[in-house]
Design a protein around this nucleic acid. Structure first.
Lengths: 199, 199
DNA sequence: CATGAATTGAGAGTAACTCTCAAAAGAGAG
DNA sequence: CTCTCTTTTGAGAGTTACTCTCAATTCATG
């Protein structure tokens, strides 16, 4: 029973795991930046992070996950959950969530985020996972939109709406990833306006 | 110069290629129906079709393509191109295209189509390719919608709109694939109505 | 039928995973 | 501190999708 331990010191074992994970993550970023995604092998990443290939897969289920995974998604979902019953429209809620989360990321992290996003759209293996990645948040959207329309979350009209939402976001993120002069907030703002007034 | 030959008899070589392709396709369908997608190996399919594994890959770039590829997409694109300047709204054009193409497929082919679609949404490797598959038609959508809005096809508002379109279709096809009592036309119809009145 | 071009099979190679098992290392009890 | 119990790790073998090369076969054509 190792449950009763202060949050501040998660124990040596946990700290080591966190360090290993980060070592792998950073090795992946570095090698992929240097040599490209496809030219970088899992074995190389593992070697650079000083773990065995087997251990790599204990931390990242696939090579793709080193690029695809980020900390923003769960934060945005949480923010959405927090605000979805404030009485705002879905569009207004979305605006708020983006401002609250993607709004204040440090410039360095923004750069990293853009690089990762560009990779995601340009490397076939990563591009393949874009829909799945975005659509994991579909359920949360569906809840709110279903409520507002007075329909169950798996009603076809709700699905069409949330699917449309997500599709628009995917397209527009690709647009953003190739245009350094644009901020995420700007792009999402435009998108939401378009969706607001109908297709 | 083997170009000058009547359309009716494409030469032995071409006929043989067509037969080989179909043999592989059918072997793939059969084995995957029997044992499931992941449990079926390319080697098994090749053996069943009586070709070498190398030849399999000469006809299908990946195992996924045996399920994902179909003849409807290019037909729909062609139909879209034919009707897009008839003066109809994008929604009306879409309705027409669906009616004209997916409308009259034989019952047997409809069943096959539904089975393939269900597979595409349930097998991760196939699901991963759904967005890419649908979004190949995004460019054709974008042309018409850009024209109607008086915007270039790569304007962000056009992208948001077409992306929304495609996302809605993806979501709604999954819904359809699990409900044998619904026809494609019905489902698309509902979807288009939703999109028409805005999100 | 002879010659050139396309198609095929065989075989070796690569890279992303998966599984198993034994060694190593932290956690907790006494 | 030491003895267990549990978790984490590395090593190694195995599977599968896919790629490349090369020589043999097969069709097309003059």
């Amino acid at each position: 029973m190792a449950q009763n331990r202060p949050m501040s010191t998660p124990g040596l074992r946990e700290r080591k795991k966190a360090r290993t994970r980060q070592a792998i993550q950073e090795a992946a970023y570095r090698l992929i930046k240097e040599n490209g995604y496809e030219a970088t092998t899992v074995d190389q990443i593992a070697a650079a992070a000083e773990v065995s290939p087997a251990t790599f897969f204990r931390y990242f289920p696939t090579k793709e996950d080193t690029i695809i995974r980020d900390e923003y998604d769960p934060i945005m979902v949480e923010s959405w959950r927090k605000h979805m019953r404030d009485g705002r429209s879905p569009i207004a809620t979305a605006r708020l969530v983006v401002a609250e989360t993607l709004g204040h990321i440090s410039p360095a992290d923004q750069e990293l985020f853009r690089w990762r996003t560009r990779l995601m759209y340009s490397v076939p293996a990563l591009r393949a996972r874009v829909w799945d990645n975005f659509s994991q948040t579909q359920t949360v959207f569906a809840e709110l939109i279903g409520e507002q329309l007075g329909l169950p979350a798996n009603d076809i009209r709700v699905l069409a709406t949330t699917g449309g939402f997500i599709g628009a976001l995917i397209s527009v993120f690709e647009y953003w990833s190739d245009r350094p002069e644009l901020s995420v907030a700007e792009v999402i703002d435009t998108t939401l306006s378009v969706l607001e007034q109908g297709i």
